[in-house]
């Protein structure tokens, strides 16, 4: 199947976008921005997949990554010590290790790209990518996909149960706290309260 020059141009632009956005992930100073640069990078890759006739996987990439990055940004901001991710912060650390890991990964991938022989396997005419993907997933590989699906579903239900108002240890408004290890003891699994922060009030006594 011949492709037009526009496909080549689009591929190059998208590839540059993916790489530049990926680089920006590490150069920006905020977790939210980093997540969304990563999202831009993934969207560019998704569009490249669409150019490669993987129409379903490419589009699925868009919405999977949109939700994923949104949740990631939200959780990072929620649990990191940065009010709403608005104060600038350093996004890279452990420099030496990451430089080595990055260089090694780059050389391995580059070597694979240069030295492996890719099959020249043009798309058969009249290929329906969605249908063939469906047959692949629900044909021979059905067992794998279904078991993965059940595991994910169970995880989702578990998360919803744990985070719902009527949580594992009672209603959230009434302060859901796990029971003590011995009857009447301090709640189990809570972080040890240091002496340095003794200034403000605590709900429970301990010494």
């Amino acid at each position: 199947m011949e492709h037009s020059i526009f496909v080549d141009i689009a591929f190059l632009l998208l590839a540059v976008l993916a790489v530049v956005a990926g680089w920006r992930v590490f150069r920006t100073d905020s977790m939210v921005r980093a997540s969304f640069f990563l999202l831009v990078s993934f969207i560019a890759v998704g569009a490249i997949m669409m150019l490669l006739a993987a129409e379903y996987l490419g589009v699925a990439m868009f919405f999977m990554m949109a939700v994923e990055m949104m949740v990631m940004a939200l959780f990072m901001v929620m649990f990191m010590m940065n009010p709403a991710g608005l104060n600038p912060m350093m996004m890279v650390h452990q420099h030496r290790l990451s430089i080595i890991a990055g260089a090694v990964a780059f050389f391995i991938l580059a070597a694979m790209a240069l030295f492996s022989s890719f099959p020249a396997d043009p798309l058969p005419a009249g290929l329906d990518p969605v249908r063939s993907l469906g047959h692949e997933m629900l044909g021979d590989s059905m067992l794998i996909f279904e078991s993965a699906g059940i595991v994910l579903l169970a995880t989702m239900i578990g998360v919803v149960v744990l985070s719902s108002h009527r949580g594992r240890y009672g209603a959230a408004e009434e302060g859901s706290v796990p029971p003590g290890l011995e009857p009447g003891g301090d709640p189990a699994g809570q972080p040890e309260k240091g002496e340095s922060e003794g200034g403000h009030e605590h709900h429970h006594h301990h010494h």
Binding site: V32, F36, L39, E55, Y56, V59, A60, F62, F63, A66, V67, M69, M70, A73, A84, G85, L86, D128, P129, V130
Partner: peptide, 24 residues
């Protein structure tokens, strides 16, 4: 597109990101 329903789904998902970004 053969996957236009899914593309609409991703428009919805990306809209969440954009609206969040607008406020943030």
């Amino acid at each position: 597109l053969v996957t236009s329903v899914v593309l609409w789904g991703s428009v919805e998902a990306l809209a969440t990101v954009v609206i969040f970004l607008h406020g943030w």
